[in-house]
């Protein structure tokens, strides 16, 4: 079970959270002007890296707040977590 650092509450067990996929994939402002390909990229395509990745979690059974956090997809090690719309810390890589 992962131990996830909520930037509001501190580290908590994974069972308190829900996963929100890759971070920093913003909802396009001008979706009507996007080509099918550009739109499909937003809806379906994620970078899925091997290694460090910034991703979103929501502390559903805690503060109910969404946040971003670095996680290593190889060994599940967590890097720094940070609140939405704040400066992204550097990748721990």
């Amino acid at each position: 079970m992962l131990h996830i650092p909520c930037p509001y509450c501190g580290p908590r067990d994974e069972t308190e959270f829900h996963y929100g996929s890759e971070a920093h994939v913003a909802y396009p402002e001008n979706s009507a002007n996007l080509t099918d390909e550009e739109w499909a990229k937003f809806v379906f395509i994620r970078s899925n890296p091997k290694g460090w990745m910034a991703e979103r979690w929501v502390h559903s059974a805690g503060c109910r707040r969404w946040f971003n956090v670095w996680r290593n997809t190889i060994n599940h090690e967590f890097g720094p977590s940070y609140k939405p719309f704040t400066q992204q810390p550097k990748s721990p890589a």
């Binding site: 829900h18 929100g20 929501v58 559903s60 707040r65 969404w66 939405p84 719309f85």
Partner: peptide, 13 residues
């Protein structure tokens, strides 16, 4: 409720 919060917190704060 999670869905509403997701949009409010991460897209339209």
């Amino acid at each position: 409720l999670d869905w509403l919060e997701e949009w409010l917190q991460t897209e339209w704060p």
